[in-house]
Design a protein around this nucleic acid. Structure first.
Lengths: 344, 344
DNA sequence: GTGAAAGCGCTAACAA
DNA sequence: TTGTTAGCGCTTTCAC
């Protein structure tokens, strides 16, 4: 029973144990160059019995290559970003690239700090949420000399590549669908997050669509923290009490929308007749509710996959590329809570 | 406007630009040792205008210190693990340590591969889910010479430290509560996941509690994939059709439990009279349902926090430590779907 | 097919 | 307070 080594093993240890030069050991361990089957076997044997784990720090320094992809997202508690992560993993799992996640908590300065930290590990590429960054962050990205993919949002100028949807358009289309369905007294319910630029863009597009039809938001309500389902319920109750004549409720995410939906159903309201409801995201978690909430898919895992593909293509297949723009176009799901436009 | 540098900047560039030796530049950038305010300012100025980002790879190799903490979890699509991650981040955010996440997809060999990959970056510590690992993985962990914290589960022997709850006990207690409340025909509904050891332990504890009361599971149903809420609904429907006399449904997670709850409510069933329901996890996402589902908190973020604290304490404050065991004890939440035991 | 030498960009240790 | 020297553990390059 060998003692647990205080000092981690090095190539040299394997070299000595196998009687093969460090260089050749290195070759075997990386499957590089021609090595005779005999030496190969001997090296592998030695490495295994010793329990050698290569030191990638040294390897990366020497080879100037790192297989890490930095991913910076606002949060994990949102359900949206874990799904993006799954999309990224799905693609990178087939390559030798590895995602490394950092959280910005929706704060640009925090994002800048995390970015700095991550760039100091010289990753092969960066994937980060949104197009809004501090000036130093943009400068770092522009000078990093590696592929950068900004995700989620395409309403703005990317540093390099971008993959996402137009939130302004998403808001606008939902607004148009609501107007087209004949609703006139529309309430908005959302998060109190000044730094959630995408929610804000959806709101802008939404009010713009209403304005074009000569309408204004009839009432609005915001929340922060707490259980989204519960908050949706409470906000809905508050709004219906304050503005009893609203005939449509647009929620900034599906979870609060589901809370509102449950509330309205309990009250026995006629949906989508007397009142219509819609959310945003296409959280399939919520299938199984008594009624299907109208929503619009944010294409989360697709965004993750496309972003990872761009990084992988440029890194591995040395593709030149640069400045790729992928705009996904989400469709409205009418579900059971938004009247469909009259058929032509 | 300087050209984007093809070659990343090095300390040497900052040294030349500021007319200060590399060593002193390094000191300034790390706030180490005494440096005169004047040189300090000059160096900072040069670093900033050049846009220098330190190379931690070289730094780590030279100093033999890495501020990364490897975190290996089964999945992100589960809601449970993102919450654990938030707990970890919460603690590490106050230190210079940084979490790096890897996913095992509930597969031990995959976990082993990810662990190998991560250990090759010589992290300061490892946090990983569960106590079940391949033999090589256990060997790597035991020999890594860094703090290892196994989380979620405490039913077994840890390699080093462990933080979690006893899932066997959790299942047992729920079983006892159900028996105590007078239910006799109990159905179980869960995930079809042979490798989810924790779900299995809960199931074992649960059946054991029933057995002690002379009961057996009346019926069971398993699912894989799909929307959990919907699956809960479907499985419940199937079970009630097949075994109409069940008087309690125990779900392996809150999400499917919520689906079942909604189904039973729609059918106008008397809850918790005719039929009782319980889930597992304490997903506060679900507050806001018409009735509050009975459940048991899995202490997710608390687990993350405690695990991170162990790593931080041993790494930063050089605490000796080793073999810490933190067993959290979740309490049953009766909610509105499980009869409370008669008061004494 | 194998090995020896040089150096990746930084920091520990010591010298001035 | 500042600078010099010698590696950290690996890979690149080139010689054999």
């Amino acid at each position: 029973m060998p003692n647990p080594p205080r000092r981690p093993l090095t190539l040299r240890d394997v070299s000595e144990a196998s009687g093969v030069s460090e260089m050749t050991v290195s070759r075997v361990l990386r499957n590089r160059g021609d090595v005779s089957e005999k030496t190969r076997a001997r090296v592998l044997e030695a490495a295994k019995t010793l329990g050698y784990v290569p030191n990638k720090i040294a390897g990366a320094l020497a080879s100037q290559r790192v297989n890490l992809v930095a991913v910076i997202i606002p949060s994990m508690s949102n359900m949206v970003f874990p799904e993006v992560m799954m999309g990224i993993s799905e693609i990178l799992d087939d390559t030798e690239l590895q995602p490394v996640v950092g959280l910005s908590h929706y704060r640009p300065e925090r994002e800048e700090a995390v970015l700095y930290e991550m760039l100091s590990w010289r990753p092969a590429g960066v994937i980060l949420a949104g197009l809004e960054h501090t000036d130093p962050a943009r400068a770092m990205l522009a000078n990093a000399g590696i592929p950068i993919v900004e995700i989620m949002d395409t309403d703005g100028e990317p540093v390099d590549a971008m993959v996402g949807i137009s939130h302004r358009r998403a808001g606008r289309e939902m607004g148009e669908a609501i107007v087209r369905a004949g609703y006139r007294r529309v309430g908005f319910l959302g998060t109190k997050m000044p730094l959630d630029f995408r929610a804000r863009k959806r709101f802008e597009g939404f009010t713009q669509a209403l304005a074009r039809a000569g309408l204004e938001i009839a009432d609005q309500e915001f929340y922060a923290g707490g259980s989204a389902l519960m908050k949706g319920r409470e906000m809905t109750e508050a709004m219906l009490a304050r503005t009893p004549d609203v005939d449509f409720l647009y929620y900034s995410n599906d979870m609060i929308g589901a809370g509102g939906l449950l509330y309205c159903l309990e009250r026995g309201m006629d949906i989508p007749g007397t009142i219509g409801l819609a959310g945003f995201n296409g959280v399939n978690l919520l299938q199984g509710l008594p009624k299907h909430l109208a929503t619009m898919d944010a294409c989360r895992s697709e965004i993750g996959r496309k972003a990872a593909e761009i990084i992988a293509a440029r890194t591995l297949r040395g593709a030149e590329g640069g400045g790729e723009v992928v705009t996904l176009v989400p469709e409205i799901t009418y579900g059971d809570t938004l009247r469909r436009p009259a058929e032509a």
